[in-house]
Amino acid sequence: MQSMHLREHNLSEILRALAEASSPTSRAGLSKLTRLTKPTVSKLVEELVEARLVQEDTPLSSGSGRPMVPLQPAAGTLLAVGLEIAADRISCLGIDLAGGTVSTYTEYLQVTATSVDQAIEVAAQLVGRVRADAGALPVVGVVVAVPGRIAPDDGRVLSAPNLDWTEVPLVGRLQQHPELADLPVRAQNDNRLSVLTEIGHRPGESFIYVRGSTGVGGAVVLGGSLLDGVHGWAGEFGHTVVAPGGARCRCGRRGCLEAYVSYHSLLERAGLGQEVRIEDLVDELSARTDRAEVIGMIGRSLGLAVANALNVLDLSTVVLSGYLAPIADELAPVIRETVEAHALAAEAGPISIERSDGVTDPALRGAARAALQPVFEAPGQWIERMG
Rank of each mutant, 00 (worst) to 15 (best):
10 N>T: 13
25 T>W: 01
33 L>E: 15
33 L>S: 12
35 R>G: 07
47 E>W: 01
56 E>V: 07
61 S>H: 10
64 S>N: 12
66 R>D: 11
74 A>E: 02
80 A>I: 07
87 A>P: 00
88 D>M: 14
89 R>F: 03
95 I>P: 01
102 V>A: 06
106 T>A: 11
113 A>P: 04
119 A>Q: 08
125 Q>D: 12
130 V>K: 10
136 A>H: 12
137 L>I: 07
139 V>R: 03
140 V>Y: 06
144 V>C: 12
150 I>A: 02
150 I>T: 14
152 P>C: 14
155 G>Y: 00
158 L>M: 14
163 L>Q: 08
177 H>R: 14
179 E>C: 01
183 L>H: 02
184 P>T: 13
194 S>T: 06
204 G>S: 11
204 G>P: 01
213 S>L: 11
217 G>N: 06
219 A>L: 05
220 V>L: 08
227 L>H: 07
234 A>S: 13
234 A>H: 10
246 G>N: 08
250 R>P: 07
252 G>W: 05
257 L>Q: 05
258 E>Q: 08
259 A>C: 10
269 R>A: 11
273 G>Y: 04
274 Q>R: 13
284 E>M: 07
293 E>Q: 12
299 G>K: 12
310 L>R: 07
311 N>M: 14
312 V>P: 02
318 V>Q: 01
321 S>R: 06
322 G>H: 00
327 I>E: 03
332 A>I: 04
333 P>T: 06
334 V>A: 09
335 I>H: 01
337 E>W: 02
339 V>L: 03
367 A>P: 05
367 A>T: 06
384 E>D: 14
